[in-house]
């Protein structure tokens, strides 16, 4: 029998703790596959955030650290500086990275820290039950914006990739989406590129993955992807913002 798909060895056998229809599993797989493809499994380490992917340290089959909320880039900095022979990534959600961890991500990027950051943006706090995130869209209803996000009061969503692209140091910044099989294939290329550059010691690499939250959005998994395409992608446009390897500055 021909095996056409299998669990990457860089993922443990621990079952994912994600909701049905959640795309974290897809994102984990993309990261794990890329690490394996570049032969880095034994020299890779990652930092799990606080949020839905808090247990990511159980899912990746190599050494992992779990960080305080928002501090993953600082923890990753400490790890990379302590063990330059290791390759380090963080895996963070939008609340973790773009709210409480804003300082850490901006400064890790600004230092050109030799780490990869995988930033899953689904416009909401998932684990704590659907509160407003810094990336929540205007007028979008959440448990802490029950009348819709009022941009006069709380401001507009933050485009993190664009924000980081104002800095000089980052080597690679790209936004992709996980909203269709074709998008996932494109996302895979971006994740692989980040891991490749990480392997080659090029500098700070950042991939934003536009995702969904069927549970907290209250929309079924298939429709939630359509909702994201219609509502998130016009504001969070996919594309490469920085790729020093390809001359995109």
């Amino acid at each position: 029998m021909e095996i056409i798909a299998k669990r990457p060895e860089s993922l443990t056998k621990t079952p994912f703790t994600y909701c049905p229809g959640c795309l974290h599993g897809v994102a984990h797989r993309l990261v794990a596959e890329a690490i394996e493809e570049f032969g880095l499994t034994n020299h890779m380490t990652g930092v799990a955030p606080v949020g839905c992917s808090v247990f990511a340290y159980k899912f990746f089959n190599f050494d992992m650290a779990q960080a305080a909320h928002g501090r993953a880039p600082a923890v990753a900095t400490g790890m990379k500086r302590a063990r330059p022979d290791m390759h380090v990534f963080t895996y963070q959600g939008d609340g973790d990275l773009a709210a409480i961890g804003t300082a850490e991500i901006v400064h890790a990027a600004n230092r050109g820290e030799h780490i990869s950051v995988f930033f899953v943006n689904n416009a909401i706090y998932g684990m704590t039950g659907g509160q407003m995130a810094p990336t929540t869209l205007p007028n979008m209803k959440t448990t802490t914006s029950p009348y819709g996000r009022n941009t006069d009061d709380i401001g507009h969503p933050i485009r993190v990739s664009e924000l980081l692209a104002t800095l000089v140091a980052p080597y690679y910044i790209e936004r992709v989406s996980l909203l269709s099989p074709a998008d996932i294939l494109k996302a895979k290329k971006a994740v692989s590129k980040a891991i490749q550059y990480n392997k080659e010691g090029r500098g700070f690499t950042f991939v934003e993955l536009i995702s969904t939250c069927p549970t907290n959005w209250g929309i079924d998994p298939i429709k939630s992807r359509d909702w994201a395409k219609e509502n998130m992608l016009p504001f969070f446009k996919v594309g490469c913002l920085r790729d020093k390897g390809e001359g995109v500055e």
């Binding site: 930092v47 650290a65 960080a67 305080a68 501090r71 600082a74 923890v75 990753a76 900095t77 400490g78 790890m79 990379k80 500086r81 302590a82 063990r83 290791m86 300082a103 850490e104 901006v106 400064h107």
Partner: peptide, 26 residues
């Protein structure tokens, strides 16, 4: 050695967490 002026005390102690977790004197 590595000297790094962190962006905040909070970041500094979390860098310590990462380095200590990597088994080095920090």
């Amino acid at each position: 050695g590595c000297f790094l002026q962190a962006e905040s005390e909070v970041s500094a102690i979390n860098m310590v967490y990462g380095a200590a977790g990597s088994g080095k004197r920090v």
